[in-house]
Design a protein around this nucleic acid. Structure first.
Lengths: 190, 190, 190, 190
DNA sequence: AATGAATGAGTCTTCATTCAT
DNA sequence: AATGAATGAAGACTCATTCAT
């Protein structure tokens, strides 16, 4: 008869894992990965330095976990129901999902943009990013093809670039960036 | 061997300064600022570590010099002749300048995006960025007002966001990103 | 399920103690004492880290227990019946005991040799080793004196050195080391 | 015109390298590799921690350098002039070289014996040990064959084991171990 | 102007040990 | 008797910066 049940241990682990990851995301995003020490994370999370390593193998693997989790989060905003026949409302939902995701995951976007060019990070994440990105492209190309857009692929690449550009500008200056009005412009565009 | 003239010394200083800055930009951009050591820069530039400090006070001041220089460079692409009456061709020149700048200063953009969210870097650069950015906004708002655009400010913010989005995507994947076709789309948009 | 009797508890303790010590010996011997963590021992023994401390006060005291037990084990191979009058067959039994001990306690010998020069370990074991060693010397000196060997003490020290040398070489390379043939040579020597 | 000549720099490097290696050998041998911190080495050598890494890539590579250097040292004692026809005096010189080496390189032997069983160390050194060992074996087998010894290989393995056994015992107790008398016994044996 | 040896503060990481349950 | 989360001290290693020459 163990003194703490397995469920109790599991719950502790779940909560601590979440706590560490949230703290890490916040600090990584705002100070940069390399300028955030494990000590700082531990202090902010009010745990000991050593405990971090009870939950994550290394600082790198913590980073990976944080990024993966953010990616999952992002994907939830972009669900499309019928893969083969995307209607306009569906694309609008997609755009709204994207913008909503930017609003709600500011820290994640900061982290993402600050790391995306580093080869080290790229190798950390493997092909996951590329695959997701290709899926998005295919989905939008299909939509623009259905709409008889002149050049579906180009339009798609532009739209995805716009999402990132809007993301960066919104993050840099959330107060004055007119996200809602820009949403209208984007919807007009498509 | 005659002693060097002052001009010769000055030229040596100029060339070394340039060499160090170019080397630093390349390494900062591709490996990240924190993952680039002064030793690595010195080795790549084939000079001694000590000499670096003869030209720059610190790693931070080297970074600042690199970023400032990149910014100057960028500004050259965006010259507008008549500040008060921008014509369509002029805006197109502006767009082309922007895209051309992205193409030619890939490393600078990488560095810029990887650092722009860090408060440390922000404080390093002071208000320079904000000022430049506000100038750009004013210029474009003026143009869109002349064209009787419904919402000049929103259009301006979107356009600037698009430049950055396109920049990021081009940098991440210069081979397959259809920069020229996207130029056409952007020009259609305005 | 009836409560356990005291004997059952005692047996559990005995078995666990033995299990932990055997696991520790194996890991200490093959990876080194300092490269073996308590966690690793616990995992190999399929118990929890905490439980280890229920049986041993510290890692050092576990080491001490392991070494002491190995020493006891070793002594069993070297029993001499009549302390005062050693015959040749008895010395041969002694040699065989020694060689047999090497064969059967390989891990113990590895551990022993890897630690024997460290002052820390020496102080851990106190004088036990010295005493045992002196006993051995006395016994053999007595024997060689009886045999009218020219220099009994020197012969004794050489013989004991040979045991350790043979031990090291057998341990390092048990497959190809000709232990049995070497036994013959040693017996010829005496 | 560099301020210090290349020769000056080279000399500094040579002396510091030697200083660090000697300090390391002494501490490794007497306290164990794992119980010797880089800090301790630096303190004993009166240099800063960081400087060690100017001369050696890692603690492991320092260890490797120390062991290799000791091995070189050892080999100098064992030179045999005519590889194909070893005479008795030559073997005696070999034995004396071996014993002399033990006397003069006590620390190295301590280190060697305490590490030789660890797989980590084995992988560090690659096949160098094995090769040297095999050379020794071949040389001695040849000698004993010439002398029409019954079993040259067994005799060889025993002799080499004796060297190590004598080494261990001498190191453990240099005061009272009768090294010179034991030399005589060994020479009688062959 | 130029070199590279030297420093030491700071970082990641490990691990023996404790403790609530 | 048993668990594993939690702690914190200690260690390997990096690197911006200084300085004698």
């Amino acid at each position: 008869m163990p003194p703490k049940t397995e469920e109790q241990f599991a719950e502790i682990r779940n909560e601590k894992t979440k706590l560490i990851m949230e703290t890490a995301l916040q600090l990584f995003a705002n100070n940069g990965f390399d300028n955030t020490s494990i000590s700082a994370i531990a202090k902010h999370a009010a745990i000991s330095k050593g405990l971090m390593y009870n939950y994550f193998d290394s600082k790198d693997s913590l980073l990976k976990a944080v990024i993966m989790s953010g990616m999952d989060n992002f994907m939830h905003f972009l669900q499309v129901e019928d893969e083969n026949n995307i209607e306009r409302e569906e694309l609008i939902r997609f755009i709204d999902g994207n913008l909503e995701s930017i609003k709600q995951n500011t820290d994640y976007y900061k982290l993402y943009f600050s790391l995306v060019f580093q080869p080290k990070v790229f190798s950390l994440l493997g092909n996951d990013f590329i695959l997701i990105f290709e899926q998005l492209i295919n989905k939008l190309v299909l939509y623009f093809s259905q709409k008889e857009e002149k050049n579906p692929y180009v339009k798609t690449r532009l739209l995805l670039a716009i999402f990132d550009g809007v993301g960066i500008h919104y993050i840099s200056d959330p107060e004055s960036f007119p996200l809602n009005d820009i949403r209208e412009l984007i919807i007009e565009m498509i």
